[in-house]
């Protein structure tokens, strides 16, 4: 697959708000996401993590403010892939799901089968290649969705709590795949509410509370020198409302 000449990074959100009717999901939020180690988006349930990712993907338009990708605002990022919190499997086999994603990403037809097998192996699903995707367990579906996302060879990979429903072994496995992608140059932006995971993966941390940006710092600083009382409470494991 070809690398586009222009980059979708940095991803800049400039005083962005997002609301649906009376509900404000994000409130005047400014943020710059640059190439490098994974950016982890953390915060309590309902704090706006998913909403923020949707804006970054170009799937939602801001109610106010602007989002730009590599300086462009006219369209969403071209080479991005998304792993939704609850990924939907196409009514096809596991392989066919990956082949479909490869086709959409412009992979030549004759290369798809081999590439799909490669990706399935990477997420540990080669043994289930011909199973109907919708019959796979939750964790397996999550990994298949990850394979589908990687099939796009993305410049930006957005992940919405990809390990929320996984056991520790599966979580570790998925984290390794994510780190591998990050090391090969993919910018990972990932929502999580697992602080251990944030420590393991994050280059920088975006901390949201009730739709507002409460802190944005390098991972070490976020944990060592929390810049706000709320961040400190969140790190201690106290309830942040």
């Amino acid at each position: 697959m070809m690398r586009a000449a222009s980059s979708d990074l940095p991803l800049v959100l400039d005083r962005v708000s997002l609301s649906a009717g009376p509900v404000t999901m994000l409130d005047c939020l400014s943020l710059t996401i640059t190439p490098g180690a994974p950016t982890l988006v953390v915060g309590p349930n309902g704090s706006g993590k998913t909403s923020l990712l949707r804006l970054c993907m170009g799937l939602a338009a801001p109610s106010a403010g602007s989002v730009s990708w590599g300086g462009r605002t006219d369209r969403g990022p071209a080479r991005r892939a998304i792993l939704f919190q609850k990924p939907v499997m196409l009514r096809r086999s596991a392989t066919a799901n990956v082949v479909y994603a490869l086709g959409q990403a412009g992979c030549p037809r004759r290369l798809r089968a081999a590439r799909a097998a490669e990706l399935l192996e990477r997420v540990g699903l080669l043994g289930l290649a011909n199973h109907p995707a919708r019959r796979l367990s939750g964790g397996e579906q999550q990994r298949l969705a990850l394979a589908r996302a990687l099939a796009r060879d993305p410049e930006i990979l957005l992940l919405d709590e990809p390990t929320a429903s996984l056991d520790p072994a599966a979580t570790r496995f998925v984290e390794e795949i994510i780190l591998m992608a990050a090391q090969s140059g993919t910018k990972v932006v990932m929502a999580s509410h697992d602080l251990g995971q944030v420590r393991r993966l994050a280059g920088d941390v975006v901390f949201l509370v009730r739709g507002r940006l409460c802190a944005h710092a390098a991972s070490g600083d976020f944990f060592e020198y929390p810049s706000t009382p709320k961040a400190a409470a969140f790190i201690r494991g106290d309830l942040v409302l």
């Binding site: 799937l59 939704f84 939907v88 479909y100 990403a105």
Partner: peptide
Amino acid sequence: HEYREELTAMDV
């Protein structure tokens, strides 16, 4: 309804 987001995400 089921597929919309995934297909949109894949730029179909």
